[in-house]
Nucleic acid binder design. Structure first.
Length: 892
RNA sequence: GCGGGGUUAGCUCAGCGGUAGAGCAUCUCGCUUACACCGAGGGGGUCGGGGGUUCGAAUCCCUCACCCCGCACCA
């Protein structure tokens, strides 16, 4: 049996989280409870935070992922592990640059006015000022991360790790620089990687454009498709790109067109002559007209087709999305969407636009700014990904890394097995500048530091690559770069690899997969052995939260209103790995539970006497059944909480405690203990034991609850004087076999059922709680009979009985029942029907009638057109019938 | 097109081979000295449709329908 805690002072009469949450957090921090010690004897547990962007403000997704981490961290810490939760923030390249850009715009300047160096300075200033906000918000949530170890992805140490990795990968031939077609964001004016492209469904138009076939060498009519002046018709959703067409393609086996291969058509508007080529890969003869325009500079497939067929690349759109000189004088300088209108107008005028049809398709946009992606040929840096992906696939397949819920593994494999090279260069200013250096003769040197002179030609005119790295490049190193790697620091030795990663499934590809790749490659170890992917927080109807829908829940508002504990508990109880439907009313519901805990503690503390200081340890042989029962139930709860937490079943764990604390401890045990606690029943030893057990259950429950509700449990703990100065340093309960007592559970459960049966019977027969009866109970053996005699007082008290008669035959005609294997009989008196009862029933009938009418009106007719009336109405009708029958009986 | 998930009480979900569960909502009764952010009790479901395996299926298999989410394609 564990330690003793004693009452020190009373709890405030009202639960008011505002009164203590921030005070308690400050105390924890001041005492250094979040910092792991250097005890080499204890097993370690470590976890790194998914670093929030410095631009971030705590939203409900952060609240969820950090609550879940904190639950695990507090649980492990209390369970005796030397626990490190390593926090930090991400520099968030594009997001931050965009934000500071916007701030500059408000001052009427652009980053180009400042120049790169000054701009980056400004971003640092911004970071110093606002970049820590989210950290403060995480503290409000109760996050017990070791802030003394907080890291930032642009820290000197982390930057060194980034350069080290870049150089190493380059030397190993896994980073290369080359010209390729990449996803380009004309708004951010940078290349982005494949995963940053999001597809949006859109209603658009499909334009059919006629390309006249040139007369030279005119052969026989090739197809019925061609009428009048011979032409080839192509379909496109982006007519402005036709200005960059350098060919048309048909399938080489297509009977309609194959004779045209090698001939030329005239590109409308531009009046250029372009060839017809045959390409079996690009063209599906069964799709559309079977003719495809080829724009090698502005479409990925066309780019490849152009290479295959020797078609030139003609860039007609520039990096800001405007038409180039090559598009022709009337288009040059026009925005691509403006150009589209003008092109259409010209096509129309020239009679080249044969049809316009509505078309539904998806368009790639840049996830960060919603701008349509413009495929663009440019020189970028890439990571050759396959050699990194292979071992990462194996690590998950062979169980080195476990993904939870398991269903995500197939998504992971699917992506990893079809992965493309990673575009890592960004044309931004904010980020890790690529450690590549060019000399006057354009020789490339990739090195940790800028070389004094070119190793190839000796030139001392050295300039660094202007591009920076994708922000996810540095995040990919997070689990080890934050611990001092590539140095073998004490932290790295002690805490790497980490144990578990908890994050949202939305960054499985962006982050998780890449950490696995980099971790395996550079440390030779999987950076974590388990990954728990949490779902998305949605509104209470399962819809995505969005500002436009107005269904966004701000965690900071919630914390202000009901406290962090209620928010945390609500998030936990819904967190099974699937999406979480969250509504304010739900949070309110669980804040009632926090209140319940508060009040139960108040009750307990009213009855825990200071003289308990010298109370003996609990001796289960001396305990009464009811005490043994609640301890056994608590023990069972302890088992399932620990088991559920091990499996990241936050929902099961929190539900188990909720169920135990409210519906067993509060609803039953406290009520059952009251006669003894209030001195109405039992010996003074009974009283001592009851007090002792009350304290024991409160103590263990608080510790069990602490990871979920750190604040309220600590506040209550602080009002008790115990062995531990803080609940944070108290041990997490584990199941103890000595507390198991199936016999007590069986008997007390029977008592509960008997009480419920009597209550039911009373209500069914229309008696009020004031009416009292006699109950007959029969034990199956002398021991059980003794038990029921001993607990007769409880049955009488809670079931409101005049007498409990054990082992005697009830009078004839008494209602008999079998409850959990025990024969009981309730002796009801003659029922007295009052006028009141009749009137009440009549009122109810009236009410139910109105209910049916109003429900039907509310639902309207549409519900009834094809369907039966809804269950609500049917239920009410059934009830109406029932009431009418009851009334008839009463009136007889 | 490929892959994954879902369809269980009015709502949101858990259960995933053995007598239908929770929270919220609803109805009735009760301000009993921890708590009305409460207590006691009730009503409400042929577990999406169909077929199969089994002594037994919400739970396993097949099939259909609808919904959601990835990925790919998109002339």
């Amino acid at each position: 049996m564990p330690r003793l805690i004693l009452m020190k002072e009373e709890l405030a009469t009202r639960y008011d989280p505002k009164a203590f949450e921030q005070r308690i957090y400050a105390m924890w921090e001041a005492k250094g409870y979040f910092t792991p010690d250097s005890d080499p004897d204890r097993p370690k547990f470590s976890i790194v935070i998914p670093p929030p962007n410095i631009t971030g403000r705590l939203h409900i997704g952060h609240a969820l992922v950090n609550t879940l981490q904190d639950i695990i961290v507090r649980w492990k810490r209390m369970s005796g592990f030397n626990t490190l939760w390593l926090p930090g923030t991400d520099h968030a390249g594009i997001a931050t640059q965009m934000l500071v850009d916007r701030e500059l715009a408000r001052q009427g300047i652009s980053r180009f006015d400042l120049g790169r160096e000054k701009f980056v300075e400004r971003v640092w200033e911004w970071k110093e000022k606002y970049g820590g906000e989210i950290i403060e918000q995480l503290k409000r949530l109760g996050a017990s991360a070791d802030w003394s170890r907080s890291r930032f992805t642009l820290d000197e140490g982390l930057s060194r790790a980034v350069r080290y990795v870049f150089v190493k990968l380059y030397e190993d031939g896994l980073i290369y620089r080359g010209i390729a077609m990449v996803n380009w964001c004309p708004n951010c004016r940078t290349a982005i990687s494949d995963v940053e492209v999001e597809f949006r469904e859109r209603d658009a138009k499909l334009y059919h454009i006629d390309y006249p076939i040139e007369a030279s060498g005119l052969g026989p009519r090739a197809s019925v498709e061609m009428r009048g002046p011979l032409r080839l018709t192509v379909a496109t959703t982006r007519p402005e790109t036709m200005l960059g067409d350098t060919g048309l393609a048909v399938h080489p086996d297509d009977e309609r067109y194959k004779e045209l291969i090698g001939r030329s058509v005239t590109l409308p508007i531009a009046n250029r002559s372009i060839p017809v080529v045959g390409d079996a890969i690009l063209v599906d003869p069964a799709f559309g007209t079977g003719v495809v325009k080829v724009t090698p500079a502005h479409d990925k497939n066309d780019y490849e087709a152009g290479m295959r067929n020797g078609l030139p690349q003609l860039q007609v759109i520039d990096e800001s999305g405007r038409m180039t000189e090559a598009a022709g004088p009337e288009f040059a300088g026009l925005d691509r969407f403006e150009a589209r209108k003008l092109v259409l107008q010209k096509l129309e005028q020239g009679g080249f636009l044969s049809s316009v049809k509505p078309y539904h398709h998806s368009v790639g946009v840049h996830g960060k700014c919603d701008t349509d992606i413009e495929p663009m040929i440019s020189r970028q840096w890439f990571v050759k990904i396959e050699p990194l992906a292979k071992p990462s696939i194996d690590a998950v397949r062979d169980g080195t890394i476990q993904i939870i819920p398991e269903t995500w593994e197939s998504t992971y494999f699917n992506w990893m097995e079809n992965i493309h090279d990673w575009t890592i260069s960004r044309q931004l200013w904010w980020g890790h500048r690529i450690p590549a250096f060019y000399c006057a003769n354009d020789h490339i040197t990739v090195a940790m530091d800028q070389p004094a002179r070119c190793p190839q030609c000796g030139s001392n005119e050295i300039r660094q690559e202007t591009d920076v790295l994708d922000t996810w490049f540095s995040s990919a190193l997070w689990p080890f770069s934050t611990m001092g790697w590539p140095d073998e620091t004490p932290d790295y030795r002690t805490f790497y690899p980490t144990d578990v990663l908890i994050t949202g499934f939305d960054i499985l590809f962006f982050w998780v997969a890449r950490m696995i790749m980099m971790g395996l490659r550079f440390t030779g170890k999987a950076p974590f052995s388990q990954v728990f992917l949490n779902g998305l927080v949605r509104d209470e109807h399962g819809d995505k939260m969005s500002k436009t829908k107005g269904n966004v829940i701000d965690p900071l508002d919630v914390i202000d209103e009901v406290g962090a504990d209620a928010l945390r508990f609500t998030l936990a109880i819904f967190a099974s790995g699937r999406d979480i439907p969250l509504g304010k009313s739900r949070i309110q519901g669980y804040s009632a539970f926090v209140n319940k805990i508060w009040n139960a503690a108040r009750f307990a503390m009213m009855h825990i006497d200071i003289e308990l200081r010298d109370a003996p340890q609990i001796d289960s042989d001396k305990l009464r059944s009811v005490e043994r029962w609640i301890l056994s139930r608590l023990n069972d709860t302890t088992t399932s909480v620990n088991k559920s937490l091990s499996a990241f079943r936050f929902d099961e764990a929190s539900h188990a405690i909720y169920q135990f604390f409210w519906h067993e401890f509060c609803d039953w045990y406290i009520e059952m203990a009251k006669p003894v606690l209030l001195g109405k029943h039992g010996t003074s030893d009974d009283l001592k034991q009851a007090r002792r057990v009350l304290l024991e259950v409160l103590d263990r429950s608080l510790r069990l609850l602490h990871p979920f509700m750190p604040f309220v449990t600590e506040e209550i703990w602080q009002k008790l004087s115990g062995v531990e100065p803080s609940i944070m340093t108290a041990p997490y309960p584990i199941a103890e076999q000595i507390l198991e007592d199936p016999e007590a559970e069986r008997l007390i459960s029977a008592v509960r059922s008997m009480i419920t049966t009597v209550r039911n019977a009373r209500a069914e027969r229309g008696f009020t709680p004031k009416d009292r009866f006699r109950l007959y109970v029969r034990g199956n053996d002398p021991r059980e009979s003794n038990f029921f005699s001993a607990y007769a007082y409880l049955l009488m008290d809670l079931a409101r009985l005049t007498e409990v008669v054990v082992d005697r035959d009830p009078p004839a005609g008494t209602q008999q029942d079998v409850v959990e294997g025990f024969h009981i009989a309730i002796e009801f008196p003659e029922r007295v029907i009052t006028k009141e009862q009749i009137e009440r029933t009549q009122r109810e009938i009236e009410k139910t009638r109105n209910e049916i009418v109003s429900t039907e009106a509310r639902l309207g007719n549409e519900q009834f057109v094809n369907n039966a009336p809804p269950a609500v109405v049917e239920g009410s009708r059934a009830r109406l019938l029932e009431l009418k029958q009851r009334l008839e009986k009463l009136q007889q």
